[in-house]
Protein backbone atom coordinates (compact mmCIF):
# COMPACT_ATOMS: atom_id res chain seq x y z
CA UNK A 1 0.00 0.00 0.00
CA UNK A 2 1.42 3.35 -0.93
CA UNK A 3 2.14 5.90 1.76
CA UNK A 4 -0.62 8.31 0.72
CA UNK A 5 -3.20 5.54 0.51
CA UNK A 6 -2.16 4.41 3.99
CA UNK A 7 -2.67 7.95 5.33
CA UNK A 8 -6.03 8.24 3.57
CA UNK A 9 -7.30 4.97 4.99
CA UNK A 10 -5.97 5.71 8.47
CA UNK A 11 -7.75 9.07 8.59
CA UNK A 12 -10.90 7.54 7.18
CA UNK A 13 -10.92 4.76 9.77
CA UNK A 14 -10.31 7.21 12.60
CA UNK A 15 -13.10 9.50 11.38
CA UNK A 16 -15.77 6.81 11.15
CA UNK A 17 -14.86 5.25 14.50
CA UNK A 18 -16.87 6.14 17.56
CA UNK A 19 -15.55 9.51 18.67
CA UNK A 20 -14.49 10.39 15.14
CA UNK A 21 -16.17 13.43 13.64
CA UNK A 22 -18.06 11.91 10.72
CA UNK A 23 -21.23 10.78 12.49
CA UNK A 24 -21.40 13.95 14.56
CA UNK A 25 -21.14 16.13 11.45
CA UNK A 26 -24.00 14.23 9.84
CA UNK A 27 -26.07 14.62 12.99
CA UNK A 28 -25.27 18.33 13.10
CA UNK A 29 -26.37 18.66 9.47
CA UNK A 30 -29.66 16.98 10.32
CA UNK A 31 -30.27 19.27 13.30
CA UNK A 32 -29.39 22.51 11.48
CA UNK A 33 -31.77 21.65 8.65
CA UNK A 34 -34.47 20.66 11.14
CA UNK A 35 -34.09 23.98 12.98
CA UNK A 36 -34.93 26.12 9.96
CA UNK A 37 -38.67 25.30 9.78
CA UNK A 38 -38.91 26.28 13.45
CA UNK A 39 -37.27 29.61 12.65
CA UNK A 40 -39.17 30.52 9.47
CA UNK A 41 -42.41 28.66 10.08
CA UNK A 42 -43.79 25.49 8.45
CA UNK A 43 -44.76 27.28 5.22
CA UNK A 44 -44.14 24.54 2.69
CA UNK A 45 -44.00 26.91 -0.29
CA UNK A 46 -41.34 29.01 1.42
CA UNK A 47 -39.40 25.96 2.59
CA UNK A 48 -39.32 24.44 -0.87
CA UNK A 49 -38.09 27.75 -2.28
CA UNK A 50 -35.24 28.15 0.23
CA UNK A 51 -34.62 24.40 0.56
CA UNK A 52 -31.40 24.27 -1.49
CA UNK A 53 -30.05 27.27 0.42
CA UNK A 54 -30.74 25.58 3.76
CA UNK A 55 -29.11 22.34 2.65
CA UNK A 56 -26.05 24.21 1.42
CA UNK A 57 -25.72 26.27 4.59
CA UNK A 58 -26.11 23.14 6.69
CA UNK A 59 -23.45 21.32 4.69
CA UNK A 60 -21.11 24.32 4.95
CA UNK A 61 -21.42 24.52 8.74
CA UNK A 62 -21.29 20.75 9.25
CA UNK A 63 -18.12 20.34 7.20
CA UNK A 64 -16.48 23.22 9.10
CA UNK A 65 -17.35 21.63 12.41
CA UNK A 66 -14.88 18.77 12.04
CA UNK A 67 -12.23 20.64 10.03
CA UNK A 68 -11.02 22.22 13.24
CA UNK A 69 -9.51 18.88 14.31
CA UNK A 70 -8.28 17.82 10.85
CA UNK A 71 -4.63 18.67 11.46
CA UNK A 72 -4.78 19.61 15.13
CA UNK A 73 -5.06 15.98 16.34
CA UNK A 74 -1.94 15.02 14.41
CA UNK A 75 -0.10 18.06 15.73
CA UNK A 76 -1.04 17.27 19.33
CA UNK A 77 -0.02 13.61 19.37
CA UNK A 78 3.24 14.12 17.46
CA UNK A 79 2.07 12.45 14.24
CA UNK A 80 2.52 15.65 12.24
CA UNK A 81 6.28 15.63 13.04
CA UNK A 82 6.61 12.15 11.59
CA UNK A 83 4.40 12.96 8.61
CA UNK A 84 6.86 15.73 7.76
CA UNK A 85 9.98 13.58 8.13
CA UNK A 86 9.69 11.78 4.81
CA UNK A 87 10.55 12.61 1.21
CA UNK A 88 6.79 12.76 0.61
CA UNK A 89 5.82 16.42 0.19
CA UNK A 90 3.70 17.77 3.01
CA UNK A 91 1.32 19.14 0.36
CA UNK A 92 0.49 15.60 -0.78
CA UNK A 93 -0.03 14.42 2.80
CA UNK A 94 -2.41 17.30 3.48
CA UNK A 95 -4.30 16.64 0.25
CA UNK A 96 -4.73 12.99 1.29
CA UNK A 97 -6.00 14.09 4.69
CA UNK A 98 -8.43 16.53 3.07
CA UNK A 99 -9.74 13.79 0.76
CA UNK A 100 -10.23 11.50 3.74
CA UNK A 101 -12.12 14.28 5.50
CA UNK A 102 -14.30 14.79 2.45
CA UNK A 103 -15.07 11.06 2.20
CA UNK A 104 -15.88 10.69 5.87
CA UNK A 105 -17.73 13.95 6.47
CA UNK A 106 -19.03 15.49 3.24
CA UNK A 107 -19.96 12.34 1.32
CA UNK A 108 -22.48 11.30 4.03
CA UNK A 109 -23.99 14.79 3.79
CA UNK A 110 -24.36 14.37 0.04
CA UNK A 111 -26.08 11.02 0.59
CA UNK A 112 -28.29 12.43 3.36
CA UNK A 113 -29.33 15.51 1.40
CA UNK A 114 -32.20 13.92 -0.60
CA UNK A 115 -33.80 12.71 2.62
CA UNK A 116 -33.58 16.15 4.16
CA UNK A 117 -34.76 17.73 0.90
CA UNK A 118 -37.90 15.65 1.39
CA UNK A 119 -38.47 17.30 4.77
CA UNK A 120 -38.10 20.70 3.10
CA UNK A 121 -40.71 19.88 0.47
CA UNK A 122 -38.25 20.04 -2.41
CA UNK A 123 -39.53 18.37 -5.57
CA UNK A 124 -38.44 14.78 -6.17
CA UNK A 125 -37.01 15.64 -9.55
CA UNK A 126 -34.66 18.23 -8.02
CA UNK A 127 -33.16 15.94 -5.36
CA UNK A 128 -30.48 14.31 -7.52
CA UNK A 129 -29.46 17.76 -8.77
CA UNK A 130 -29.08 19.08 -5.21
CA UNK A 131 -27.04 16.05 -4.22
CA UNK A 132 -24.94 16.52 -7.36
CA UNK A 133 -24.19 20.18 -6.54
CA UNK A 134 -23.20 19.19 -3.00
CA UNK A 135 -20.96 16.44 -4.33
CA UNK A 136 -19.29 18.84 -6.74
CA UNK A 137 -19.00 21.80 -4.34
CA UNK A 138 -18.16 20.31 -0.94
CA UNK A 139 -14.57 19.42 -1.97
CA UNK A 140 -14.00 23.18 -2.31
CA UNK A 141 -15.30 23.67 1.23
CA UNK A 142 -12.99 20.96 2.57
CA UNK A 143 -9.94 22.31 0.78
CA UNK A 144 -10.62 25.94 1.76
CA UNK A 145 -11.10 24.67 5.30
CA UNK A 146 -7.76 22.88 5.06
CA UNK A 147 -6.04 26.28 4.85
CA UNK A 148 -7.89 27.42 7.94
CA UNK A 149 -7.07 24.18 9.76
CA UNK A 150 -3.37 24.60 8.95
CA UNK A 151 -3.38 28.23 10.06
CA UNK A 152 -5.08 27.41 13.33
CA UNK A 153 -2.55 24.63 13.99
CA UNK A 154 0.33 26.99 13.23
CA UNK A 155 -1.23 29.53 15.58
CA UNK A 156 -2.09 26.88 18.17
CA UNK A 157 -5.62 28.27 18.30
CA UNK A 158 -8.56 26.54 16.83
CA UNK A 159 -12.30 26.67 16.93
CA UNK A 160 -13.92 29.98 16.23
CA UNK A 161 -10.82 31.52 14.66
CA UNK A 162 -10.97 28.86 11.95
CA UNK A 163 -14.56 29.79 11.14
CA UNK A 164 -13.72 33.50 11.05
CA UNK A 165 -10.82 32.91 8.67
CA UNK A 166 -12.54 30.38 6.43
CA UNK A 167 -16.15 31.46 6.03
CA UNK A 168 -15.58 34.60 3.90
CA UNK A 169 -13.63 32.46 1.44
CA UNK A 170 -16.54 30.07 1.00
CA UNK A 171 -18.94 32.73 -0.32
CA UNK A 172 -18.31 31.96 -4.03
CA UNK A 173 -18.89 28.24 -3.40
CA UNK A 174 -22.14 29.01 -1.63
CA UNK A 175 -23.29 31.34 -4.41
CA UNK A 176 -22.72 28.90 -7.25
CA UNK A 177 -23.78 25.84 -5.27
CA UNK A 178 -27.16 27.31 -4.36
CA UNK A 179 -27.56 28.88 -7.80
CA UNK A 180 -27.01 25.56 -9.54
CA UNK A 181 -29.45 23.80 -7.22
CA UNK A 182 -32.03 26.56 -7.66
CA UNK A 183 -31.64 26.48 -11.41
CA UNK A 184 -33.19 23.03 -11.41
CA UNK A 185 -36.09 23.95 -9.14
CA UNK A 186 -37.15 27.48 -10.03
CA UNK A 187 -35.04 28.45 -13.01
CA UNK A 188 -34.87 30.56 -15.06
CA UNK A 189 -31.08 30.43 -15.36
CA UNK A 190 -29.67 27.16 -16.76
CA UNK A 191 -27.99 24.57 -14.53
CA UNK A 192 -24.83 24.26 -16.61
CA UNK A 193 -22.87 27.49 -16.03
CA UNK A 194 -23.09 27.67 -12.22
CA UNK A 195 -22.44 23.93 -11.93
CA UNK A 196 -19.37 24.15 -14.16
CA UNK A 197 -18.04 27.08 -12.15
CA UNK A 198 -18.68 25.11 -8.96
CA UNK A 199 -16.55 22.25 -10.30
CA UNK A 200 -13.88 24.77 -11.26
CA UNK A 201 -13.87 26.19 -7.73
CA UNK A 202 -13.40 22.70 -6.29
CA UNK A 203 -10.55 21.91 -8.66
CA UNK A 204 -8.81 25.25 -8.14
CA UNK A 205 -9.03 25.01 -4.36
CA UNK A 206 -7.73 21.42 -4.51
CA UNK A 207 -4.60 22.81 -6.18
CA UNK A 208 -4.12 26.00 -4.15
CA UNK A 209 -5.15 24.89 -0.66
CA UNK A 210 -2.58 22.09 -0.01
CA UNK A 211 0.21 24.46 -1.07
CA UNK A 212 -1.03 27.27 1.19
CA UNK A 213 -1.74 24.90 4.08
CA UNK A 214 1.70 23.28 3.87
CA UNK A 215 3.30 26.73 3.76
CA UNK A 216 1.35 27.71 6.87
CA UNK A 217 2.50 24.61 8.75
CA UNK A 218 6.13 25.06 7.71
CA UNK A 219 6.12 28.72 8.68
CA UNK A 220 4.45 27.86 11.96
CA UNK A 221 7.28 25.49 12.92
CA UNK A 222 8.64 26.39 16.28
Amino acid sequence: MSALAALYWRDLRLAVRAGGGAAIAALFFLIVVALVPFAVGPDLALLSRIGPAILWLGALLASLLTLDRLIAVDAEDGSLDLLMMTPMPLEAALAAKALAHWTSTCLPLVILSPVLALLLNVEFSAMPAIALTLAAGTPALTFIGLIGAALSVALRRGGVLLAVLVLPFTIPVLIFGVAAANAVIVGPAPFGPPFTILCALSLASAVIAPVAAAAAIRHGLE
Binding site: I147, L165, I197, G220
Partner: peptide
Amino acid sequence: SRAARLAAILTLVGAINLPVVKFSVDWW
Protein backbone atom coordinates in the same frame (compact mmCIF):
# COMPACT_ATOMS: atom_id res chain seq x y z
CA SER B 1 7.43 37.11 13.02
CA ARG B 2 5.35 33.93 12.91
CA ALA B 3 2.13 35.94 12.90
CA ALA B 4 3.52 37.94 9.97
CA ARG B 5 4.32 34.83 7.91
CA LEU B 6 0.93 33.23 8.57
CA ALA B 7 -0.92 36.48 7.87
CA ALA B 8 1.08 36.78 4.65
CA ILE B 9 -0.18 33.37 3.52
CA LEU B 10 -3.76 34.34 4.35
CA THR B 11 -3.32 37.67 2.54
CA LEU B 12 -2.08 35.97 -0.62
CA VAL B 13 -4.88 33.41 -0.56
CA GLY B 14 -7.23 36.37 -0.12
CA ALA B 15 -5.68 38.12 -3.10
CA ILE B 16 -6.42 35.03 -5.21
CA ASN B 17 -9.91 34.82 -3.77
CA LEU B 18 -10.91 38.47 -4.18
CA PRO B 19 -11.41 38.41 -7.97
CA VAL B 20 -13.40 35.19 -7.54
CA VAL B 21 -15.59 36.85 -4.91
CA LYS B 22 -16.03 39.91 -7.14
CA PHE B 23 -16.99 37.74 -10.10
CA SER B 24 -19.33 35.52 -8.13
CA VAL B 25 -21.06 38.41 -6.37
CA ASP B 26 -21.58 40.23 -9.69
CA TRP B 27 -22.99 37.04 -11.16
CA TRP B 28 -25.18 36.43 -8.12
